[in-house]
């Protein structure tokens, strides 16, 4: 049995599989699959060693660095990149309004890391936001407006509940 051909997982609601060629190889980095094979370039490469978080995506709702995930380990899992985040997610507007995006290269990963935080802690404190985003480096904003955006989005979501 060839594992590569049985491999399948869900990316942004769509099933990818080794059998139909939408997964080229189990040893491919998830980052490369997203950017080069799936053509979804919202996930960025900043360092290639899990340090900057620009490539962060959610796997089963948990934030991971896609540069350090071989797709062979995603069998049966659900992956969400920025392209799969619902456009109604309050983080999107909160980031735009707060000025939490400048050059924008860290923004998709930052938003997904924030989404993972808000899913497990819908009403975080500033310190919890700072802890949750410590794996996502931003060189433009000094982070203050990112904190504000996440706290603001938490308020919006809280209003829905």
């Amino acid at each position: 049995m060839n594992f590569a051909r049985t491999l399948e997982f869900t990316l942004n609601g769509r099933v990818l599989s080794g059998a139909d060629g939408s997964i080229a190889s189990p040893s491919m980095r998830l980052l490369d699959l997203l950017r080069l094979q799936a053509g979804q370039t919202g996930t960025k490469e900043g360092c290639g060693e899990g340090e900057c978080g620009a490539c962060a995506v959610l796997v089963d709702g948990e934030v991971v660095n896609s540069c350090l995930v071989p797709v062979g380990q995603l069998h049966g899992r659900t992956v969400m990149s920025i392209e799969g985040l619902p456009r109604t997610d309050p983080l999107l507007e909160a980031f735009a309004r707060a000025g939490a995006t400048q050059c924008g290269i860290c923004t998709p990963g930052m938003i997904l890391a924030a989404r993972a935080l808000l899913d497990r802690q819908p009403d975080p404190s500033l310190d919890e936001v700072r802890e949750a985003l410590a794996g996502n480096l931003c060189r433009c904003t000094g982070y203050a407006r990112i904190y504000a955006a996440v706290l603001d989005a938490a308020t919006v979501r809280g209003g829905d509940a």
Partner: peptide
């Protein structure tokens, strides 16, 4: 006012050089 490039950037739609093929 909200930055003009904010929407493209939060949605991951802004195209940087490495995104071009």
């Amino acid at each position: 006012v909200v930055r003009k490039d904010a929407a493209a950037k939060v949605l991951g739609e802004a195209r940087y050089v490495d995104d071009l093929v």
